[in-house]
Write a protein that binds this DNA or RNA. Sequence first.
DNA 1: TTGTAGGCGTTATCAG
DNA 2: CTGATAACGCCTACAA
Lengths: 343, 343
Amino acid sequence: MNNKQITIVEVAREAGVSIATVSNVLNKRNVPMAPETAAKVEEAAARLGYRRNTVAASLSRRKTNELGLLLPGFGGYYGQFAEAMELTAHRHGYHLSVYATGSDPEREQRHLETLLERRVDGLFCHGMAMKPESVGRIVRGGSPLVLFNAWEWPEDLAVAAVNLDFAGASAEAVRHLVERGCRTVYYAGTSKALMIDRQRRLGFRREADRLGDQVRTGMIHSEAGDPEEQVTTAAAEALAEGGPVGILAFDDRMALRILGRLLQAGIRVPEEVKLLGINNEWFSAAAYPTLTSMSIPYEKQAELAIHRLLSHLGEAEDGKDLPQAKGEVTVPLELTPRRSTEA
Amino acid sequence: MNNKQITIVEVAREAGVSIATVSNVLNKRNVPMAPETAAKVEEAAARLGYRRNTVAASLSRRKTNELGLLLPGFGGYYGQFAEAMELTAHRHGYHLSVYATGSDPEREQRHLETLLERRVDGLFCHGMAMKPESVGRIVRGGSPLVLFNAWEWPEDLAVAAVNLDFAGASAEAVRHLVERGCRTVYYAGTSKALMIDRQRRLGFRREADRLGDQVRTGMIHSEAGDPEEQVTTAAAEALAEGGPVGILAFDDRMALRILGRLLQAGIRVPEEVKLLGINNEWFSAAAYPTLTSMSIPYEKQAELAIHRLLSHLGEAEDGKDLPQAKGEVTVPLELTPRRSTEA
DNA sequence: TTGTAGGCGTTATCAG
DNA sequence: CTGATAACGCCTACAA
């Protein structure tokens, strides 16, 4: 930070007006004013190379116009989502800063506390690593919080929650596989402790139950070892009793890894095994064969979240008339069929 | 921002001391003090739920302890890099905020201006979309700037530049392919206008020249159409005159796409075509066959950059004795051999 | 239409 | 060791 900072005081002196006038001109406030006065100020500011000091402004206005977003990481889905959030926030006049926690409770806590101390106007958290009670203790009385994919979280902790409908997506995926002729369908997940995995299992199970004995199902999780390995073996065995076999992977990354195993085992996709993932990342269209996936409506998610936060701040732009402005919303994914599940 | 904020004034009243004392104990400043006074303050702060207001502190200290990082996006390499930067910054007592520009000059400019107005203590930019003159005009007199992968940029604009040695990596890749028996080697790039692509071409060409007629080379760019398509056709033709053929892709993403095309065309990797990318992203180890790549020393890059910035701020932690603390550094990549280039 | 003055919440300098 | 008090740079009634 420069020591010889130019302030509105200098600009005022240079322009021969008062600091209030400078402030008004520079912030384009609609106070009546002689055009020449404004011009004088503009020119003086430009000549001096004046740059607004937001920290002073924030302190004075008790508002920072800054938002914070906490994510487990920047890669894949999260990165895409962060960009959508950034854009949406800006469209509403806010600046969004993004941080990664690496799913580490300590890093998460540090970021939370720092942002609260910075008095951000709002906070978005995706996949919290900390326990609800700890979050509550930290966040209480601070900036409002909007959560993502927070099923089973206490209502009063956040002003809203925006959840992706992973359960619905899983169900749709199962249907898709069965419609394509799969008599056996596997879900290859990660840890059963992960909430996003639980949601997928839930939808998978629900649809399996609905389908009854039209289809045999199996669920694989990482607690029992390498899921890619397991599902490949399982699929190979099931194949012996008649195919094709369907596999729903936790996400596209896992789908890609499974694809590698299948090819390595000499199993043909989609002829013998049909495979699909979730997230629709770029490589799903690049892989060979291309991977069917469930895509995520990033813009919608972001718009929903920011709208809720702003409406909480009392800045709802009506007109839009989005669903109820607090509580929990569920956002559906969309099936994007590709070669890996073709008939 | 809450209206009924608890300030050190209330804490001071509650503890029955002055605000100066509160400030001292809360910031653990090493002023001599009665332990009981400190305890009283701590307790009062806890009881009242006091939370430090960094914006006021920043204004007063003329220092924010905040750093900003601008990236084209959050995905892949950039995301990994951002995480390393965040961690490194924290290790040095700073908080790093990350922003994506989408390689859009306007978004980039907005972020730059916002961060400058926020008086961040330092700024990191990776792959600027704006022209040097514009950046100079905006940044002048503001927070110090460290650039990444900024070849041919004016010296005085930034306090330092940390560049990846893509030229060297390309050269090493060519050598690797030739050693593995490739008599024809292609570089599949993107736009020739992209600086990071130019660097790769440079190294590729240099090594090709050095090798003389030991090897035939070809360079492909997106200006002439789909590079994945082109390189696949070219490789198929070259194959007719004897293989194996080597392909160095612009990055792992392109390598994965090319891999898909090759497999689709029935070309065997690595038997007929040997393929390698740059960045060593996660999927390079997941693809089938696994992809050879050049990995990036994220931590080193981050440490170098932050160290330079801090040393510019006069906070160099000596001892370390890193190379000269300003100007340009070049960071080498490291070959990570995998199946796709095996003999 | 423009100027004055009192915050905003902390830090830091000096006396006591 | 502790407590006033003047910055820090800007905003915003309220006055002129």
